[in-house]
Amino acid sequence: MDKKKRTRFIVICSCILAVLLVGIFLTGDPAKEEEPINIVMKDAVLHETAKVSFPIVGSVNPAVVSAYTVTAIILVFSLTVRLFVIPKFTDTPGKFQLLLEQAVGIFDDLAKSNSPQRNKFLGVYVFTAGAYIFIGTLFELLGVMVPTTNGGSIALPAPLADINGAISMGVFSYLVILSGGVAGNRFKGVLHTLKDFSLPISMSFRLFGALLSGALVTELVYYYITTSFIIPVFVAVMFTMLHALIQAYVLTMLTALFYGEVCMKEGPIEDGKIP
């Protein structure tokens, strides 16, 4: 492309962008103008008004739909991998096989290092939780629009940006830790687990707070048209991609740590081996 053609290309692109910008500013969303920022933020936290319909149970928070959509995506992906990729695994792994082995290996090692005595179920759980938090948080970036029960539309949020989703994750993790305590130490294990009764609350609200902060900042950025350009790229990276990694790591690490603690058998150390 010579200099003249390049200049013409840049000028045409600039004109199109300018026309689009004018159009964007002139055609504002009348619904958004009616909805003040405090309502938008409150709804992002509580989902009191923007509900979506769900089969059998009726109207639910959009995060429930997000959760099942994420599960469906993971199911399709897993099924495809199970049917077409895993049978072709070789001793010398390719890039994709290496990725899968790394994903399984990282969580398996996390379980083994934190709970050397009992780690099979813990490995599966932290793998699931890690995948769910990571993929669920990144799912928010897709911005899948669904109709709400009040006639509007809403972009599906991350499943754990909803208080009910975060509580279920925290409670499930706590139940897994409790099961480890029961399996490893019977009644003593239960007592050990109950001693940390604040764990499900801290786990739930840590997740909720972290993911909600990202959702709120994103809402705020998109609420004002002037901040809707370029800035969302950095916001998405900071609050979605980093949170996806950090929260997946934090929750799985905490669960593995507490699981290992409650299921560890007490007794004297013989020949350097823990009983």
Binding site: F54, A67, L75, V81, P159, S168, M169
Partner: peptide, 19 residues
């Protein structure tokens, strides 16, 4: 409970099909 059901379902799927 819906979220918990989803999590248990996901755990089973991931365990059987991938992990």
């Amino acid at each position: 409970l819906l979220h918990l059901f989803n999590l248990v379902l996901l755990l089973s799927i991931l365990y059987l099909l991938l992990y």
